[in-house]
Amino acid sequence: MKIAFTAAGTNWDSMIDPRFGRTEYIVIHDENSEELIAIDNSAVKNEAHGAGTATSQRIFELKPDVLITGNGPGDTAAKALAHMKMKIFVGAQDMTLKQAYEKYKSGELKEV
């Protein structure tokens, strides 16, 4: 499984970025290889409009199985993610990536 996080930083101790479209980083954890890769999303963050779809496009290209974020995507991004049949878990704001991952594993994050 590949897990994507919206993150304020690049490692396991970084906080979850509660925003989807304008997240600072997208961090991907590959459960098979146990790798953690961080993708800088600042280019999208600086778009005036359409940050939600632009970040969704990146998510699509990264092909994760699960997305863990904070408040949850806005309307347009939600539509795009639904099209990819992405499993989305929200409510991970105020957690580090590690905490969020644990909560996800134990089934304590809300799926939308």
Binding site: D17, P18, R19, F20, R22, G70, N71, G74, Q93, D94
Partner: peptide, 12 residues
């Protein structure tokens, strides 16, 4: 619209 969505995003 979009600005208020952005205002709310990340709020506690």
């Amino acid at each position: 619209g979009c600005p208020v969505v952005s205002s709310l995003s990340g709020a506690n």
